[in-house]
Design a binder for these strands. Structure first.
Lengths: 165, 165
DNA sequence: ATGTCTGCAAAGATTTTGCAGCTGA
DNA sequence: TCAGCTGCAAAATCTTTGCAGACAT
C-alpha cells in the first residue's frame, strides 16, 4: 500500500478533529492491500486475517470514513451489492466495463469521454463534479470463438455472476 | 399511460407463460402514471391510492417482473435507495445528471456520448449492450446568482437531498 | 384442472445505533 | 481530562420467501 494513502487519511482525521486508532490503520491497510473491488463483508474478512478482534461495526464506520475522506468510492456493478473501489486515487476518473458473459470488470480511462461529458454538462447549465460511467457489454471473444477465457476463470474463482439472491 | 406499455407487458407475460392479473395491471398503471423516478415504497403508495388491497410483496414481485420485461430500469442516483426509472421506453439510452446543490435530476440524451462509448467499448474488445452514465454537478446558477431555483422547489417538496439515513 | 399468483407474516440480508467502557490527544 | 472510538448486541431497513387459498387459462 502506498504510504501516501495513510497520510491522506491522517490529514482527513486531523482536519475533522478525529482520532488515529489502531483499528483504522488496519482497516485502511486491508482496504488498499489489493486493487480489487470489495464489499463490506470482504473487507471484514481481510481485516480479520490481520487481526481478529476488530468488530463489524468498526469496519462499517471506517468504510464510511474512507469514503468521506475521498479515498474510496462506492460503485454499482449491478450485482446488488454495495461495492467499494480503491482505485480512484490512482485513476481519479476511470470508468467500468462489466462483461455480461463472465462478470469481469474492466477499468478504463478515456480523455475523450471526460471531455465530451464535461461539454455536455456545461451546455446543460451545470459545472461537472464527477461522472460515473458503467458500460455493460458482451465479450467479443465469446461470440467469435464460442468461449470466453474469463468465464472459466470466473467460474473457477467461485465468484457470483450478477444477482446475489 | 401509453397503451403500448400494457401490450408490452402482456407480450412478456404470454411469452413467459405467466398470467395476466388485476394486480399487475394496476401496478403497471401506477408505475407509468408519472415520468418521475420512484422507489418500491413510492410505488406501493401510488398503488394503494388506486386500490388498497394490494400487498407489498406483490408490488416487489411485479417490480422485478417489469424490470425483467425491460419496461423499467433500476438506476442509482446516489441517494442510497433503489430507484426505478420508467422513461427508458421513450428514451432508450438517456443519461442522468444529478445536481449536487438541489438534488434535481436532469435526464438527457446525447448521440455523441453514445457513439464515443460504443467506440471505446469495441476498442476494448467488447460488444456494448447498455451504458449507464451519471454526472454529478453543481448548479451554475447557484454559483453565479447565489441561489438555485430548484433548491427552493426541492425543499418545499420535502424531498430528501442525498443520504437517506 | 392445474400451475401461477396473491397476501400474510416470518425470515433474511445488510447496515446502523445505543450504550458502557476504553483510548488517543 | 474528556471527546471520540470500539465492541457488542439489538434495532432498523429493505427485500425475499414459504405457505395456503384464490385465480387465470
Amino acid at each position: 500500500m502506498d504510504a501516501g494513502i495513510q497520510n491522506q487519511l491522517d490529514d482527513f482525521i486531523r482536519r475533522m478533529g478525529l482520532r488515529r486508532t489502531g483499528q483504522r490503520e488496519i482497516i485502511l491497510k486491508a482496504a488498499f492491500s489489493h486493487k480489487e473491488h470489495f464489499t463490506a463483508e470482504d473487507l471484514l474478512g481481510r481485516v480479520r486475517i490481520i487481526q481478529a478482534a476488530i468488530s463489524r461495526a468498526t469496519v462499517y464506520r471506517t468504510l464510511a470514513l474512507m469514503v468521506e475522506a475521498g479515498l474510496l468510492r462506492e460503485i454499482d456493478l449491478g450485482d446488488e451489492q454495495t461495492t467499494y473501489d480503491p482505485n480512484f486515487l490512482d485513476k481519479p476518473s476511470h470508468n467500468h466495463l462489466v462483461c455480461i458473459d463472465c462478470g469481469r470488470v474492466v477499468e478504463f480511462e478515456d480523455a475523450h469521454i471526460d471531455l465530451l461529458n464535461d461539454c455536455v454538462t456545461r451546455r446543460l447549465g451545470f459545472k461537472p463534479l464527477r461522472q460515473t460511467l458503467k458500460i455493460e457489454a458482451n465479450c467479443e471473444q465469446l461470440r467469435l470463438n464460442g468461449r470466453c477465457p474469463n468465464l472459466i476463470a470466473t467460474r473457477l474463482s467461485g465468484k457470483r455472476l450478477r444477482k446475489k439472491r
